[in-house]
Write a protein that binds this DNA or RNA. Structure first.
Length: 572
RNA sequence: CGGGGCGUAGCGCAGCUUGGUAGCGCGCAGCGUUCGGGACGCUGAGGUCGAGAGUUCAAGUCUCUCCGCCCCGACCA
């Protein structure tokens, strides 16, 4: 490929909107360009990378016996309505109608449709296990696309779907995908770790996200310093340390005057006690308008994701003044004792005496004890934070890191097959629902995450397995006949050996060509110059190695082939 | 959806406070000189100043409405 013909120019300066290093490099190196908020065009260089990433995913799916197929982007409404997702997904999906008024949705994922197909194609338990997958565009009308390809509104996802006869089978398929994901990310140069994740409003109890830890990530991950516990903050829990004083040695609650102290911070200051000596009581209202109180240790914040899951609701909001009045509470002085509302008590609340709001203006109660002075459902509703004790080993401390979710695997069981009455005939002749799982990888997000984690101050450093080209050949200067002839011979020799070559034949200065070469980040650069040709030499430099190598012209091809062979070790 | 910021040439920006001929750098085109780290000279092309309405003799600049984009938060299997 002659660079003078390449569709896509490099930029000396990145557009102002680009914030993360990977986003800036993606735009500067002509990998992809925005068309509208959250909608990107792959330019030829980026498209080549995307295809290589896809191919790695494909090979690893095929390796575990998954079969590639393809379902449409545009999907009819009825199956969505059958599972309740037509309503649920309304805020984040693109919809349209055809000329007859039939409703369609740009697919968000394809569980409904793969189940429809499974009902038709899989009649008997003998035909399972089955895993099918496709690469297909997904539409998500995200409220806030961000950071280039990291969060977009249309993107190609590899989504795989497994069908098994029972939970045990599902677990095997899940494990197979888990292994495929580990190999897939490693092969594309991503250091992805698996973390426990929230299964969201979909139910099901097993889900993992594959996260690449980087500052630009938008997810927060709790990681144990001692064992292998890793969980998304939406799901992470902590080990509760010790127990506070037992209830039987705590005197009965007494009211204390606390004029003007409406926050934990104010109580901490005026009573000179630590935050965790208080109870924080928050009043929420769910999607259907039901009001619930959440009681937490004073030093903890509520985790809305956990709370939504507990309440099985799509949304929680802070309660209104009317809700406070109905619960017999006063803003700033709300407490669980005598509260007229459903009460959830965070598992972080211990057995000892706390100071809590008295539900009267300017008053609090001291020596309030859970189980004696108030009752409530025990739930995990609080945030885990840096320094908490690991719930698994009960020894290590948790640290919080940011990550990009490059893939997820999710065992949902019979969630869809129950709703859609998707069944097969089992060994004993009875009809049973499929046990399913789904497994996604976002291609574009993976590409940008590779850039985010593989660059220096000059540009991208592509892992060779996903690089847009294997070799970058530079001619300095291109209008010198001998240089051009030598460069074009080298290009021809390399191509005849099956290498993909980008040949910089542009009539540009050396500085421009070298800077562009560093920016684009092809793993191997061969520079043919007037200076080196005088000694019958060619300079070969690996992008990730600082020092170039000078080799005899005749040895250039074999040297490059040796370097290029490094990518083979990733085939696994 | 809440908060903040920004829309002027392909990209980066100045001009707006105080209304009066639309600018700079990069990039682009032509010619020439250069050629190992984003070279140089000369010439040139390129603008509905996001859109609409208003105020005014006169609007890139002031007012209003709308649209778009970015950031933080909310939301997001």
């Amino acid at each position: 490929m002659r660079q003078s013909k390449l569709f896509g120019r490099t930029l000396r300066e990145a557009p102002a909107e680009a914030q993360t290093p990977g986003h800036r490099l993606m735009l500067r190196a002509a990998i992809a360009k925005p068309l509208a908020a959250g909608l990107y065009t792959w330019l030829p260089l980026g498209f080549r990378v995307a295809k290589k990433v896809e191919q790695i995913i494909r090979e690893e799916q095929d390796r575990i016996g998954a079969q590639e197929m393809e379902m449409p982007v545009l999907t009819p409404a009825d199956p969505w309505k059958q599972t309740g997702r037509w309503e649920m997904l309304e805020p984040i999906t693109f919809r349209t109608t055809d000329h007859n008024g039939r409703e369609f949705m740009v697919s968000y994922t394809h569980e409904e449709f793969v189940h429809l197909h499974a009902m038709q194609e899989i009649q008997s338990y003998r035909q399972m296990p089955q895993i099918v997958y496709h690469f297909q565009s997904k539409g998500r009308d995200e409220a806030r696309p961000r950071a280039g390809l990291l969060r977009v509104r249309e993107f190609v996802m590899k989504d795989a779907y497994s069908f098994d006869v029972d939970q045990a089978g599902l677990e095997k398929s899940y494990a197979a995908e888990y292994g495929a994901y580990e190999r897939t990310f490693k092969r594309m140069g991503l250091d992805a770790i698996s973390v426990e994740s929230d299964t969201g409003a979909m139910g099901g109890d097993v889900a993992h996200e594959f996260q690449v830890l980087t500052e630009v990530g938008e997810d927060r991950i709790a990681i144990c310093a001692n064992c292998d516990y890793r969980a998304n903050l939406e799901k992470a829990t902590r080990h509760m340390e010790g127990q506070r004083a037992r209830a039987d040695v705590v005197p009965a609650p007494t009211q204390i005057a606390t004029p003007g102290t409406e926050s934990i911070e104010a109580l901490e200051a005026s009573l000179n006690q630590p935050k965790h000596a208080f109870l924080k009581t928050l009043l929420f209202r769910d999607q259907s308008g039901k009001v619930v109180a959440v009681v937490l240790p004073g030093d903890r914040d509520v985790n809305e994701a956990k709370l939504r899951k507990t309440l099985a609701t799509g949304e929680v909001k802070f309660a209104s003044d009317a809700d406070f009045a109905a619960a017999g509470a006063v803003r700033g002085y709300i407490g669980p004792v005598g509260l007229k509302a459903r009460v959830l008590v965070d598992t972080g609340v211990g057995g000892g005496g706390y100071t809590a709001g008295a539900n009267k203006k300017d008053a609090h109660l001291r020596d309030v004890v859970l189980g004696r002075d108030f009752q409530g459902e025990r739930v995990d509703a609080s945030d885990v934070r840096e320094g908490d004790v690991c719930p698994k080993c009960k020894v290590g401390r948790l640290t919080i890191k940011r990550g990009v979710e490059v893939g997820n695997i999710f065992a949902y069981g019979t969630y869809y097959s129950d709703k859609m009455n998707a069944t097969f005939v089992d060994e004993d002749g009875t009809r049973r629902p499929f046990f399913g799982g789904s497994y996604g990888i976002g291609v574009g997000r993976a590409v940008q995450t590779i850039i985010e984690t593989h660059h220096d101050d000059k540009g991208i450093i592509w892992p060779p397995q996903v690089a847009p080209f294997d070799v970058h050949v530079l001619a300095l200067p291109v209008n010198d006949d001998a240089v051009r002839a030598a460069a074009e011979k080298l290009v021809a020799d390399l191509e005849s050996r099956g290498l993909d070559v980008l040949y910089d034949d542009r009539n540009e200065s050396a500085g421009v060509k070298l800077a562009d070469s560093d920016l684009i980040g092809i793993p191997i650069r061969a520079t043919v110059s007037k200076r080196n040709l005088a000694e019958d030499k060619i300079e070969i430099k690996q992008r990730h190695v600082a020092e170039p190598l000078m080799v005899k012209s005749l040895e250039a091809v074999s040297c490059i082939e040796t370097f290029d062979a490094e990518k083979l070790k990733w085939r696994g």
